[in-house]
Simulated assay, not measured.
Amino acid sequence: MTDPLVFPPMMSGHAVSGVSDAFATAQAKAAMGCDAGLIVYNLGANSLSAALVFAPEVPLSRAMSMLPTCEVGFQNALGALAPPEVAVHLEWGGGIRVNGARCGTFRVAASDPNVDEVPDWLVVGFTLPLWPESDRPGDTPDATALYAEGCVDVEAPRLLEAWARHTLNWINRWEQDGPRSLHEEWRGLAYAMGEEVSQNGLIGTFMGVDENFGMLLRDDEGTTHLIPLSSLLETL
């Protein structure tokens, strides 16, 4: 029997199993009025997925900062549990990179896509592959899984608990001190900053982010485009 999961105060857990989608389940529970701080999770044999429910008190344009907050919390959690030589970075679009290869992704949804309104709820979730889908990793060199990158001692339940703790720490810092420290931490973990990327149909150099974590993308003609973080919102 595995030990029960332990989450920080003001957070609670709800386990799903099998093919159940933690992200969709969290959205459904949020729509039904569950308490903020609920973590819906699925500890699968080959993957870990989880989603955290928020009840924002600020307009969606600012509340979207909970996406990079959760991402930084994940990086800090995995960084603390994985061997020191394992590098963990974050794509602006939600992708997780482990030792340079794609290893899971973050997703975000809200009750209302209007960036000027305070949404009833916001859900941020992630899926992390634990084992490769194929025994021929060379066929997909840009995709990997956690245990293929020297992290076999990282237990999924402990990683999930650590994600909750580190994310709560960053939520508190964001509420108390504003976004500056989160910006500094995220910039140091951002993948492909200063390089050419493709995002939302645009191609250009990833120059950084604005105060609300919108992507600043400079094209070949020297025009800088702002891609708002809200463009990553998913709908049921």
Rank of each mutant, 00 (worst) to 15 (best):
Asn99Met: 08
Val98Pro: 03
Ala50Glu: 10
Trp121Ile: 09
Gly93Asp: 13
Leu60Lys: 14
Trp174Asn: 15
Cys151Asp: 05
Ala156Glu: 07
Asn99Phe: 06
Arg173Asn: 01
Glu234Val: 12
Ala63Gln: 07
Asp220Ala: 08
His89Ile: 00
Gly204Pro: 02
Pro4Cys: 09
Arg107Ala: 11
Met1His: 08
His166Ser: 01
Gly178Pro: 04
Ala192Trp: 12
Ala22Ser: 14
Asn42Val: 02
Trp121Phe: 01
Thr69Tyr: 06
Leu122Trp: 03
Gly93Ser: 05
Leu168Asn: 03
Ser181Gln: 03
Gly13Ile: 08
Val197Cys: 05
Phe213Ser: 01
Val40Leu: 09
Val19Lys: 06
Ala30Trp: 09
Ala164Val: 01
Tyr41His: 15
Ile171Ser: 00
Ala30Gly: 08
Val197Gln: 14
Leu130Trp: 11
Gly79Met: 02
Val19Gly: 08
Ala162Lys: 12
Pro141Trp: 05
Val53Ser: 04
Gly201Arg: 12
Ser12Phe: 11
Leu60Gly: 00
Ala87Asp: 15
Asn76Asp: 15
Glu175Cys: 05
Asp112Ala: 11
Ser49Cys: 06
Glu221Cys: 09
Ala22Phe: 06
Pro179Ser: 12
Glu196Cys: 05
Ile171Pro: 03
Arg218Asp: 07
Ala143Phe: 04
Thr224Gly: 00
His225Gly: 00
Tyr41Asn: 05
Met1Val: 08
Val40His: 09
Glu161Lys: 05
Ser49Thr: 10
Leu5Asp: 14
Arg97Gly: 06
Ala87Gly: 00
Phe213Trp: 03
Asp35Tyr: 04
His89Leu: 05
Asn114Cys: 15
Ala190Glu: 11
Trp131Thr: 15
Ala63Tyr: 08
Ser12Trp: 10
Pro4Ala: 12
Met1Ser: 13
Asn172Arg: 13
Gly13Trp: 04
Val118His: 10
Pro4Val: 07
Thr205Arg: 12
Gly73Gln: 07
Trp121Gly: 10
Glu221Asp: 15
Val86Thr: 08
Arg97Leu: 12
Gly194Met: 00
Trp186Ser: 00
Leu67Glu: 07
Ala162Pro: 00
Leu160Trp: 12
Arg180Ala: 15
Ala24Cys: 05
Leu52Met: 13
Trp174Arg: 02
Thr223Val: 13
Gly13Glu: 14
Gly222Asp: 09
Asn114Tyr: 06
Ser65Gly: 00
Arg102Glu: 06
Leu90Val: 00
Ser17Pro: 15
Phe23His: 09
Thr167Pro: 04
Phe106Leu: 05
Gly204Met: 12
